[in-house]
Structure formats: structure tokens, C-alpha cells
Amino acid sequence: MSEGALAKQDPVLAVDDLQKSFGGLAATDHATFGVERGTITGLIGPNGAGKSTLFNLISGFYEPDGGTVEVNGTDVTGMEPYEVADYGLIRTFQTPRKLEGMTVREAMLVGPREQPGESFRRLFTSPGTVAESESANLAEAERILAEFEIDHLATQPATDISGGQMKLVELARAMLAEPEVLLLDEPVAGVNPTLAKKLKTQIRRLNEQGTTFLLIEHDMEFVMDLADPIVVLDQGHVLTEGTPEGVRNDDRVIDAYLGGGA
């Protein structure tokens, strides 16, 4: 039954028997699956299937009641989110909050990890190094914004851009953190079709350049077109995993959606 982590050749993320319950209700119920390096893996399931909980468990925002999470072969179970990020796993949020008082490129500059200027001491002991890395990061941020074709937004206040543009910026910023595996939580929810198409192109391009993706998405057309394989979650456990084609024709998946839907 469980064709989870062990079945993968080179898993960048392996989730094994993960459990979490809230007030006696199992939100994640012995979930086991893996994400193969170089793939765009989709994570779908009806409302309340526990997709967001699973994301929070993997990225360290929740502490699991049982089971393990491995990133690049390292056990990161129970670690703080920033430690998980250090092992190469970065996540985005469903509804990104806007960084008040920052311009877009300023908000981008939060992305790079381990900047020398993040040490208070070094601001005063080695300002030269700080300036150097800041220049490099700024150039990199502007390059990525250009790749995303949103460089015209660079000096706009982050509070002034649209929700869809914000999603693009978020993706771009996550790339500055140089993730090996990037978890996207509903990247196109509330995004207009033109921007959604743009996002799809970008994700595909980044994937070709070597980033592995795991994404939650409700837009079936979007996820079926982009992701392979697809993991189906139902009531906190993994129902099945397969190609878009296989999942689409799986009776259990159809039942889950029909049974779980209101």
C-alpha cells in the first residue's frame, strides 16, 4: 500500500508516518510520501484533507505528534522553521502579508540567507563586507525580478502591488533563498488567468534549472498540467500517488472529492 519515501530513488523530501491531532481530531493521520529530486510534485485533496497542516509540519511550524520528516537525508523533525530552511527547504504562504513600508526590492532582499549584514556586530566591525554582500544581493534581486518580468515593480511600495503580483514577488524572493525544495501553498489562488499562466511558466523554468517543487493547489487544471507526480491527501492520510492521468481516473480519488465535498 505505502509506496512512500522508500520507493523514491533520490528523495529530497521524505515524510514518514507523520501524525498530528488537534483536540483529539487527527489532522494528519500517518501520512507517508516522498518528493523525488527534480520533480514538480502536486499535493491535492478535498477541503479539510489536511494539506496545510502537512505543510506546517514539514516546514517546522507545527511539531508533529509522531513520525519523521527528512530533508536531503537529514532528519529535521521537530526543528524550528529557520533550521529546516538551513537544510534547503523553503515554503511560501497561501495569503502573503504585505511588508508595510518596504519597496518590492527591499522585500526581496529579505530572501537571501545568512547575509553578513544580519549580524548586528558585523554592521560595525566589517561594514565593507556588509556593503559588498548587500550590493551583490541587490543585483541578484533585480536580476531575478527581471527574469520574472516584474522589474518595473522594483521600487514600488510593496503595499501597492496586486495580490497576483505579490505571489510572483513571493516566488521570486523564495528563489533568493536558494532552496533545493520549495513548498508553494496555493500559488495561484486568487490570481488572474494571465498572471497564473506566467507563474506556471516561471515554476517550470525554475524546475528546469534544478529546483524541486511541492505545491498545494485547488486549481485542478493548473496542477494537472504542471505537476507530476501528484499526491492525493484525504482525511489526513495519503490516499494515492500517481501521474495526473492515473489520479484523474482513480475511483478512490473521485470518491474522496465527492464524499468530502459539501
Binding site: 511550524f61 524550528e80 515554503r91 511560501t92 504562504f93 502579508r97 529579505v110 544580519e118 524572493r173 533563498a177
Partner: peptide
Amino acid sequence: DLARALGKD
């Protein structure tokens, strides 16, 4: 949460 997700302690 955003800062934490981006690897900041």
C-alpha cells in the same frame, strides 16, 4: 512567520 519561513531565527 514569513521571516521564519525564509530561514531567520
